[in-house]
Design a protein around this nucleic acid. Structure first.
Length: 346
DNA sequence: TCTGGGGTCCTACAGCCA
DNA sequence: TCTGTGGCTGTAGGACCC
């Protein structure tokens, strides 16, 4: 039986939720992100299609989005509401197949290989049910693997439905820019461009040996196989968290050691609270310091014995802080816990 | 121009040990 | 006893994702 993977992507999710609950925003450029104040630090989480016309897109600093369109409606992200809508959508998908992989708040993969109905019927049912429970549209892509399903869902947005078959790889996949491949970000794109590789078809003509030399064996092989449309990664329906972290960017860069210490202690409290909720104990503690010039350093420390005791973890955090040279003002601080063990006594 | 917050995975390197 | 090697672990940083 050949694999049939479906990828569902909500259209401009956060902005669409805001437009649905405030109909006066329908048809207007809506930008969701940060505190909703374009004069403060933050980036765009989602821009409505009306805002995208002005060149506003995800991950763009709010200040730049404001310059592009000062008339746009800027709103803070309301994650609780988005999570609630997301749960409804995921339930629709699980009703089709329990083999669902969550990919963040607004995306999911679904393995529909074992379902006898046509792809079109399944896609139609999902779209209708998502609309019925949320009032929102989504785009659907179907392919023989996750890589191609994801590319398919991105091809016709919003409210799209696209199928990519194995025979379509040369016609549909190869003319696309390499950046469309999941795993090719700005850095990889630049290196590939320097090699004369601009579209996926160019990438498929480079040998895996050359790609491995440039990108390392793992990423190099991945790139080659991706360019050929090959991807055997399974649908992962459940996984244990591997790290818990909290970080904070200050409205203005800070220079006082006292403030740095206070914030790190507060962040430690937050991660420890979550650690205990997960009934885990932790071995490695890492702090992150980003300076005013965006230089970022991390320092980590492993405990002799895994712990969930706040004083142990805070001590490790401050031991890490002592190893950071605080010669510049600080823009961001973070605390991360990793390498968990189960807390058997609980 | 200015660049969030929560994650995952990979690589390089150093130190330790068999 | 000395030296080289390879595996493992911890640490730091980077790229990428939504």
């Amino acid at each position: 039986m050949s694999r049939r993977i479906l990828h569902m992507d909500m259209d401009a999710f956060f902005a669409a939720v805001e437009q649905r609950r405030r109909p006066e925003l329908i048809g207007k450029p809506v930008v969701v992100g940060g505190m909703g104040d374009p004069s403060s630090r933050g980036v765009v989480a989602t821009a409505s299609y009306e805002a995208r016309v002005f060149g506003i897109h995800s991950a763009m600093p709010l200040k730049i989005a404001y310059k592009l369109n000062p008339q746009a409606v800027f709103l803070p992200a309301d994650f609780e509401t988005y999570e609630e809508e997301s749960r409804k959508v995921k339930k629709v998908l699980r009703n089709i197949s329990p083999l669902m992989e969550d990919v963040g708040i607004d995306e999911a993969f679904l393995d529909i290989s074992a379902i006898s109905r046509s792809s079109l019927e399944i896609g139609k049912e999902i779209k209708e049910n998502v609309m019925a429970v949320t009032g929102l549209t989504c785009s659907i892509g179907i392919g023989p693997n996750k890589l191609l399903a994801k590319i398919a869902s991105d091809m016709k947005k919003p409210d799209g439905y696209t199928v990519i078959e194995e025979d379509d790889i040369e016609d549909i996949l190869w003319p696309l820019p390499v950046r469309k491949l999941l795993g090719v970000g700005p850095k990889t794109e630049t290196v590939l461009k320097d090699m004369g590789v601009e579209i996926i078809g160019d990438l498929a003509k480079v040998t895996p040996e050359i790609l491995s030399l440039r990108f390392g064996p793992s990423h190099g092989n991945f790139l080659y196989r991706a360019a050929c449309g090959l991807d055997e990664r399974p649908i992962v329906t459940f996984w244990e968290p591997k790290s818990i972290s909290r970080e904070r960017t200050f409205p203005r860069d800070i220079g006082h050691w006292q403030t740095i210490a206070t914030v790190l202690a507060a962040l430690t409290k937050e991660v420890v609270l979550e650690l205990r909720q997960e009934k885990m104990i932790v071995k490695t503690i890492t702090i992150k310091v980003r300076f005013s010039d965006f230089q970022t350093v991390t320092r980590s420390k492993s405990l002799e014995e895994a712990s969930d005791v706040e004083t142990d973890i805070r001590r490790a955090v401050f031991a890490c802080l002592q190893r950071v040279e605080l010669v510049k003002k600080v823009r961001l601080l973070g605390v991360r816990l990793s390498r968990f063990e189960k807390h058997f006594s609980l």
